[in-house]
Design a protein around this nucleic acid. Structure first.
Lengths: 217, 217
DNA sequence: TGATAATTTGACCGGTTGGTAAACATTACA
DNA sequence: TGTAATGTTTACCAACCGGTCAAATTATCA
């Protein structure tokens, strides 16, 4: 028979497991660095250390590889936001969210760039995920933040734009890494930049959200 | 003679001026939406409304088109930062910088995405610009901010990461536009989102930088 | 061990891509 | 107006790309 992985009806062999793993790892490397269109199957095959037809035996099309990769990565990518806890201390929750997002930018920059490439070019392959699960999750957490503000636990602010601001500032260190390095120069670009960023961002967001303002006149 | 625009020794004809303009406009459209590798010369030709060989008469290679486009756009893209004025009121300067960057994200999203695509994929074509003129400009303005902080006019903070934060939060609304729209949904995604973002960001940065903190214990 | 299924590969295909050659058309200008 | 320079187009090419095929190799297990 010649039924590759797409048609696996039940269990996968050890060899399938291993190869699909190696392929997705290579695909992450190549897609995140070049975007979907910019990536070539040959490139992925070379990084994975196998022949192109062999790749296509496990994933029948380039698109299928990309989709499998997205599906696999998206879930863990949204974990930090999922952990956002309505019961916890608001300022502590926000601070810890920032810290976790920044750690992900540091430890998983390829995953960040994978999505950045995709969204930047109009999200042709993940539109549904954005409008569905992502929006639902953000809506839920935005409601939590709104409740905190209403209860006077943090300053009033638009919860959606707060989330956007945390996303953008943290992912910046993954997505625009070369620019950050170029601007900081050799001296300051040593790994200290993530600690500096953490210090700066925690202060920025926490001081900006503490309840401390009186309505002007 | 068959010396196209690359070899223009002195003046350019009216027709050259017009065509190069149309080409660069089309190139901006296509490069910003697809990245360098994802863009095709045929696509640009179609958008520009001329034949591919005709394009290549004015710009001998795809690379040359991209370079010309970058050179043209980078200057105006950095204008807001250049206007950053050491003599002005610090908080007002920062607020106005945020506002201008956000206006650019709204009015020139293609330019923003052009650079985002480039930087995201490792800046293979603009590394020199980043390490040279960009770094120099940022260094200069970072010094201004540092001086303000030293003089007690704003809270102490890392000026580089402050600039990164302003860049990332504002450009987010151009680069990740589809995601922002998807999350905000039909209702809130009407153009109001830029006003909401402006309100949020001005508050975030200004409250976060006002001199109002006393050193904890 | 042998036979059956799963895996791997080299050769290849049609379509796309960046770019060229040369003939043709248009413009500028003496 | 004539002619030389400039601009435009059609036809084309070689390299690359995603994907197929059939043959060969390897793993599985009765």
């Amino acid at each position: 028979m010649v039924l590759p992985r797409a048609a696996r009806t039940q269990r996968r062999t050890r060899i399938q497991e291993e190869k699909e793993e190696r392929i997705l790892e290579a695909a992450l490397e190549v897609f995140s660095a070049n975007g979907f269109r910019g990536a070539t199957v040959d490139q992925i095959a070379e990084v994975a250390g196998m022949s192109k037809p062999n790749l296509l035996y496990y994933f029948r099309t380039k698109e299928a590889m990309h989709r499998a990769l997205i599906d696999r990565v998206l879930d863990t990518w949204l974990d930090p936001l999922r952990e956002f806890n309505a019961e916890g201390n608001p300022v502590a929750e926000i601070r810890s969210y920032i810290r976790r997002k920044l750690e992900m930018a540091r430890d998983y920059p390829r995953e960040s760039r994978l999505f950045a490439n995709e969204v930047l070019q109009g999200a042709p392959h993940i539109e549904d995920e954005l409008k569905g699960p992502l929006k639902a999750l953000v809506d839920e957490k935005a409601e939590v933040i709104r409740a905190w503000a209403k209860a006077g636990k943090i300053a009033k602010c638009d919860p959606y734009h707060l989330i956007f601001a945390i996303w953008s500032t943290t992912q910046h260190y993954a997505d625009f890494d070369v620019q950050v390095r170029a601007v900081l120069g050799q001296g300051n670009a040593g790994e200290g930049r993530f600690e500096d960023a953490a210090r700066f961002l925690e202060r920025l967001f926490v001081d900006g959200l503490q309840v401390s303002e009186q309505p002007a006149a």
